[in-house]
């Protein structure tokens, strides 16, 4: 009788053990499966979110502020001029395309890196002509812009030299802004990181003086 009981216990254990391990296996696979499905769902939803936000930067009009990261610029007028805004600074020869506007420093310190660090100036495209990088002038001084102070709005002129093969037609100006991160991933310090397209201005330049 005693032997029988021991035998039954032995068989019961034999049967229960594989049963328990099978249940454990199923549970582990179930968890893994749920994890994979969740990863697929999240990746898919991220793609959907990306597609929902259009890549094209917003169109901006004259008088509408556009962020440059450290500063906010409000374009006011685009003209073709015969001479640059300064008689002493910058390049003098040839026709100029001048974008006039107002700029305001929106950070808490004086900024020398108005267009980001490393500097990323506006890009201008028109009729396939190759425009060089623009020069930025402080209208008040008729000198190149050095620095802007917080809470003081200034009029500036962004000036491109016009290549010889360009005739007056529509131009597209693209603005980019630099991203600010209060605590970066490396030192948790405040950092200015990548540039992103902030806006596109399409206009036909007026004929100036």
């Amino acid at each position: 009788m005693v032997e029988d009981e021991a035998g039954i216990r032995f068989y019961a254990r034999m049967v229960r053990h594989p049963l328990r391990s099978t249940a454990r296996q199923i549970r582990a696979r179930l968890f893994a499966g749920i994890g994979i499905l969740a990863a697929i769902a999240v990746a898919w939803w991220m793609k959907v979110e990306d597609a929902r936000v259009p890549d094209a930067s917003p169109q901006i009009a004259f008088g509408e502020p556009v962020s440059l990261g450290r500063a906010v610029f409000t374009p006011q007028k685009l003209t073709v001029e015969k001479a640059g805004p300064s008689a002493t600074a910058g390049s003098q020869a040839g026709r100029k395309l001048v974008l006039a506007g107002q700029i305001e420093n929106v950070t808490g310190t004086s900024q020398a890196a108005v267009f980001g660090q490393p500097e990323k100036l506006l890009t201008l495209s028109s009729g396939g002509a190759g425009f060089p990088l623009p020069e930025v002038y402080l209208v008040r001084d008729r000198e190149l812009l050095g620095q802007i102070e917080p809470r003081i709005r200034e009029d500036i002129a962004i000036v491109w030299n016009i290549p010889d093969d360009w005739h007056e037609q529509d131009v597209t100006i693209e603005f980019s802004a630099q991203q600010f991160k209060l605590r970066d991933n490396l030192y948790a310090k405040a950092s200015w990181l990548l540039f992103y397209p902030a806006g596109t201005l399409s206009a036909r330049p007026e004929r100036g003086a």
């Binding site: 808490g108 310190t109 004086s110 020398a112 402080l138 001084d141 000198e143 050095g146 620095q147 102070e149 917080p150 809470r151």
Partner: peptide, 15 residues
């Protein structure tokens, strides 16, 4: 260091 906490560097217009 301004009253509002903003920091003004020396003006480069008058360097």
């Amino acid at each position: 260091l301004g009253a509002t906490g903003r920091q003004y560097n020396q003006s480069t217009r008058l360097e």
